[in-house]
Amino acid sequence: MGLNRWGFLAFLVGIFGLGVLLIPVADALPFLTRANLVVFALHAIAAMGLTLVMGFAGQVSLGHAAFYGVGAYATALLTAKLEWHPLLAMATGAVMAAILAALLGRVVFRLRGHFLAMATLAFGLVFYVVMRGWDSLTGGNQGTGGIPAFALGGLRLDSDTSMYLFLWGVLMVGIVAARNLIKSRPGRALVAVGASEVAAASVGIDVARAKMSVFALGAIYASVAGSLYAHYVTYVSPDSFGLLPSLRFLVISTVGGIDSVWGAPLGSAVVVLLTEGTREVVPKFVSGATGSYEIVAYGLALVLVLLFLPRGLAGGLALVVQRANEWLRGRERPTPAAVLEEVELR
């Protein structure tokens, strides 16, 4: 379904309004603060890169946090030590992440099966070890700090609210870029690759090249989010970019749903709600309950969501919308893809 210019504008205003609306929601909920919104948006941007890799190239990455780390460390070192402009540092990080991803992809996409998963796992771990071991550059385990707040002209992002609104803007750009990509010629090629590599190759799509570019694009999303993370926290240490953060991005993407651009924001919102919600609710039921109950609840919730909503929340939502439509209009919607667009429009 095509969108005319007005429709597109309405769409943009719609998402922007949604983002602003989340602020009073966070204020109203006792267990959320605006800082949670910042984390939500950061993770959503990074995870959206992973959603592209998984949904549109059918590949899984277990080292996504390394690209997040490339951006964060690039920003940390370039802005704090060399006093580069934040934008320039962010761009440098993104280019480095893209190059790393392309190199990794070049080597790995020759292989079949789960090898990308394994290779990205290894890549992520090596990155983690190097960030810990290369003291003179990265500050080693102690990390590196003194990163200035993000500033662009007169705009200085030094409060949670301004940071969040800016991040939401970045997220919007990310969503629009991803949507346009899917509808473009290379994007359709990617969807074909995701559906069936053999079929895609048979109609003349360079599968390896397509996968490599989507992998690099995913790395750029993560790297930009990482740069902004560094500006927000003003300090980076290797623990934020190890295996567990990689798994967290994986969880966000899959819980949200990997075949919709809305998957990552949805998944990120759910993970924030789950983490903070269990922190708030569980102690009310079990007195003296500490972190452990939250972790069990988090793990179980993850398993249950994936068991019953294999296409993630976005997929589940699309199904609900489809059913509602059928019921209301008394006719069948043609394809799930059309339904997805329907969701995006609303």
Partner: peptide
């Protein structure tokens, strides 16, 4: 690391 990350 947790303290320095929370420093801001």
């Amino acid at each position: 690391p947790t303290t320095l990350a929370a420093m801001n």
